[in-house]
Nucleic acid binder design. Structure first.
Lengths: 306, 306
DNA sequence: CTGTTAGCGCATTCAC
DNA sequence: GTGAATGCGCTAACAG
């Protein structure tokens, strides 16, 4: 068995409850005593038994993160950033990426204070104070999320038109053509073309984009996802298109993190994570949280000509 | 507070230790009593307090999985399969994909019985009975792992040559050219060309592959990873190469799962997971485990002409 | 077969 | 300030 507070108490010649207080930085113990105990605990290699602590207090500082689609880079970025922000606030993040049932069991075992769901879909956990899904805002309408994407797209489109881009080709997946819709509605470009593709069928994707580029000769391409943009970039190059001299490429991404080879528009992974972590902290401490939308951001690199 | 075994005991008019036994399916309690208690527990919505159980037994059925590179599809496949196999054996898999320190804390909190490391690199955890890394076999030499990859490559190459392929182009990343080495050594093909690329620089990757294809006109392409193969496939198509009529494409993947658009050679994710889970089970129960290598497998689809 | 008891490691009263 | 006592929910002897 490992070192317990009783072991420390014996060594320190104090009672184990004094050790408990010292370890929890209680004001009820004299500073020198506290320091002595802390030093001794470190020296003896004491590690708290979390099960015992949870049992005794009925509380846990663990926060569950449920992210079934972690293989998508945007979600992975969100997971990492949120974990980081939670740690900074003294929580222990516990990630589950597997089935809903596994997640439930893991979280219940850790007695998580709340669960953050990172997915377009909501999941209903029981036996937890509350869940939070930044992508659905738990009960708010889908429109709200669409509005955020739309804001980002408009900002990116404006930047492109103001820097001399006139014709655009939007590339999005069949199922979600929000980008085309936004660009069409806003009518910021002189010429707009849309191209719908399927990333599971690279052959048809290639043909579709080639055809679209041949027909329209756009000076800008906006993609609804980073993966789409990477493929589009390569296809453009294979067709001899000079990026970004002849044509700029930019893509939407949910959680922007530095290091992308493609210019992106969307929301900063870090800022979104800060907001999520702040929200969680406020709610757990039963404090007010005034909800402000994050502003869309644009991360430019060599794929866009200004 | 939630329902405890005492609550159930009161309702059932038995002692709480009887309830405990019934819940743990002990033979020390009569079948009717057991059924009655089980039914009652279900009806009352009882959920075990794992902290209390861990505290009382000093044991936990949680197994840690540390997979820092889960964004790579092969590792993701391994995680899912291993989690599944562990569950089948009564363990609770807990995944950590974040920093080493976070993982340590999470696993220590769950008092995991052991930790499975899914990474090319080893990590040294303390306070755990044992760790297991199927990719390094913990202390065995790198050569062992290389040998497995080599076996798979030879099997795939033989299949290609026996079905009429004579010239091959291998495509691998600069850092790991094991595939080129194997193909060179084995000399199964009449003509062999190598192409080294970098997936972070799509522009140069495109140029390099185009150049290689122009020069060599192979009737088979073997890639050292699925990502490389997907890109190569698209580039081939963009160059007007008819896949698989003029040229077959196949790629190595660590953990093969059904559903890939590219033909693959490597090891079955499921079989590898079974082996890992069996090993863990044996070791935890302090039983013998006779170590047998998995056999390489090949998953063919339309990208290979037979 | 069932009940009684002790104790896992810790936080938290309440005395001193 | 510090220590002694109690209990969190559960398992595991042991007693009946």
């Amino acid at each position: 068995m490992s070192i317990t507070i009783k072991d420390i108490a014996r060594e320190a010649n104090v009672s184990f409850s004094t050790v408990s207080k010292a370890l929890n930085d209680s004001p009820l113990v004299k500073e020198p005593t506290k320091q002595m105990i802390l030093a001794l605990a470190k020296e003896m290699g004491y590690e708290i038994n979390t099960s015992a602590k949870i049992l005794a207090t009925g509380k846990s500082n663990a926060v569950g993160i449920y992210c079934p689609s972690i293989t998508k880079p945007a979600y992975a970025a969100a997971c990492l950033e949120i974990s980081h922000q939670l740690k900074l606030r003294g929580f222990l993040p516990a990630l589950s990426t597997s089935s809903f049932n596994d997640a439930k069991e893991l979280f219940s075992r850790l007695k998580v204070a709340c669960i953050i769901i990172l997915d377009q879909q909501d999941f209903y956990f029981t036996n937890v104070d509350f869940t939070y899904n930044p992508y659905t805002e738990n009960n708010e309408t889908k429109e709200r999320f669409y509005a955020l994407k739309k804001d980002a797209a408009i900002k990116a489109a404006s930047l492109l038109t103001h820097s001399g881009h006139h014709s655009v080709l939007t590339v999005s997946e069949y199922e979600e053509d929000w980008l085309s819709e936004v660009i069409k509605k806003e009518a910021l470009f002189d010429k707009v073309h849309h191209c719908y593709v399927n990333t599971n069928d690279l052959e048809r994707l290639f043909t579709a984009i080639k055809k679209a580029l041949d027909q329209t000769l756009p000076d800008a391409i906006m993609c609804s996802s980073r993966k789409l943009a990477e493929l589009t970039l390569m296809i453009s190059k294979s067709l001899g298109l000079n990026i970004p001299v002849e044509c700029s490429i930019i893509a939407y991404e949910e959680n922007i993190e530095p290091g992308s080879p493609i210019s992106l528009f969307g929301y900063s992974a870090e800022k979104s994570a800060v907001k999520t972590a702040d929200y969680i902290t406020a709610k757990i401490n039963e404090q007010e949280f005034d909800y402000v939308n994050n502003k869309p951001e644009i991360m430019l690199n060599y794929t866009v000509k200004l």
